[in-house]
Design a binder for these strands. Sequence first.
DNA 1: TTCCAGATATTTTTT
DNA 2: ATATCTGGAA
Length: 721
Amino acid sequence: MTVLNLLDQLNPEQRQAVESDAQHLLVLAGAGSGKTRVLTHRIAWLIAAGLASPYSVLAVTFTNKAAREMRGRIEELLETPSHGFWIGTFHGLAHRLLKAHHETAKLPANFQVMDSDDQLRLIKRILSEMNISDERVQPKQVQWFINQQKDEGRRAQYVTSHGDWYQDTLKDIYVRYEELCQRSGLVDFGELLLRAHELWLENPELLAHYQQRFTHLLVDEFQDINTIQYAWLQVLAGNKLSMTIVGDDDQSIYGWRGAKVETIQTFEHDFPGTHIVRLEQNYRSTAAILDAANAVIANNPARLGKNLWTEGERGDPIRLYAAFNEQDEARFTADEIQRLIDGGTNPNDIAILYRSNAQSRVLEEALIHSQIPYRIYGGQRFYERLEIRNSVAYLRLILNRQDDAALERIINVPTRGIGNKTVETLRVVARDQGCSLWQAGLFAIENSVLTKRAANALEDFMLLIADLEEAITDLDELGKMVKTVNEASGLIEFHEKEKGEKGRARVENLQELVSAVQSFAGNDEADTPMALLGQFLGEASLDAGDRQADEFEDSINLMTLHSAKGLEFDQVFLVGLEEGLFPHKMSMNDPGGLQEERRLAYVGITRARHQLTLTYAESRRLFGSETFNSVSRFVREIPGELLSEVRLRSSVSRPVSFGLQQDMAIDHAGLSLGQRVRHPMFGEGTLLNAEGGGAQARVQVSFDDGSERWLMVQYAKLEGL
DNA sequence: TTCCAGATATTTTTT
DNA sequence: ATATCTGGAA
């Protein structure tokens, strides 16, 4: 593709951004305004115009998926393979740097990345070691604290304590945690970033090398950046590199993970000479959808301000379906999707979005029932499954005996007579000697610290690991190596014995791991199969395993709103629009949280190209008990004329002026949804719904005899209980 | 030490 | 509803 062709496909603003020769460029890009397009075209343009080489460009994203997509698009544009490019997530790039300079970073060559589950285990272990009951200090809290500190770029020694016990304890735990990680050669997600940052600061020559190499730094989704990530970028950029950052403050949805929206605002000051381009023309959605999105997000104060517009058509109104309960909601959604597919819509262009993963279950059931193929993003990730983590732990321990997290995980899986007591003894030894659990094991056997039986079991285990290592060292394929480990460790057998569907699924997953490993290419740095295995393990913990979804047949898409960011679909079903669920009750109390929820709603709405369908359930079985939530405020923030209510089993829809009716009816009766009521004739029941106001007010009651009735409030003489 | 049953806690989003 | 933890029996 020539330089000219590259620019041809762009509108004036996009073009301005792509060709900008300002030293720094900030692109404020609304949803669907061609943000990624600008970024990829800019990279392609820089290279095609000879301003940069593939080796001098560093592009950073937040998700692996985004990184892969960007890579693919650039390859398409430039019509060349993109091996030379550094494109990746912050974590992925940090990992790559630390691997390359592990000595400088004071890490063992085979250091491993710990995911949050490993992290939590380690913390629990520290708590018990320090004799802190997990009632006084909750492990989750500690984990949150440590991650937060790392996101802020703060090492344990810099944690300020103002003499309060809780804070001091957290600090002590953090100190101990760092010690143990360092000794085991483990790094958590935050550590990757923190170390990569320190790598720059402490090694000016190294930094200079990279500053010389890279001429252009590009960052996607800049609104999601946290303190340490920004610091890392700033140091790298120095005052020489050219920065291009792209973002949308209205789509900042990772505040809970330490992302700072403000950074996008201060960027201008931190990098003088920044040219700002706004992309406000939307190419994705119909006007109706855009209007709805704009109306919702307008309720947030302190925005940078943007107004999306489109030249496209008005489109159908947004459909709203009030489901009776979550089953009904799922059934409705499945039926509608079936209709769309029958009508010729490609299933790939349909998505169901929800706030939290727990909601997917009912939807899945309904889809299975209707035999609609679906793929599900996120949720239980492949590499987070128990059996996969066990298998990976074996591999990790084979590669690195100091990996305490891996050892603890599988020392008694499958059960082999090494119980809590033995492990506890090992921990004590490890602490006294300041060594790893593996070394503690050696010590314990030599010095007969353990009972005969325990020592035997332990020795068997240690021999097993040694044998496994020997067995796989000479194998030439990763697949064979993993297969061998799965079988010889007894994992396959262990899970086969598990009863029911579960066991079979686990064995299948283990086989799936073998093929995943088999197709892992790695890069040329690994010269032996063992080294390649190490590389695979390193990347696996950073990999959500979301690739698997792409390989299946045409299917509709299920995902959380968070994972939907950056994607678009012709048909979007946004389900579970209830107060407490979305906005989530955890976020409802603080204004910042609520605003983030609203941005999440904005993200959700703007995923839709042609049509958006919103649903909510008047009653929902949640955590085992029935809950009654009113419709989400976000629905009420959409102007009534943009909405049309869908009635069950009827294609007729009518405009709805939403919000007031229900509330009035209820106010009038002095009752509330979900309340228990008594009727003189029908007995007791639960208030399900209400409509109309004043003399016309009617309520729907589900009576305990199983009947459901609409009653006029005026005449029904309902008694609240 | 293992296994099982029953109690108990835990409900957001992800690299 | 589910996963995780705990305690007690085998």
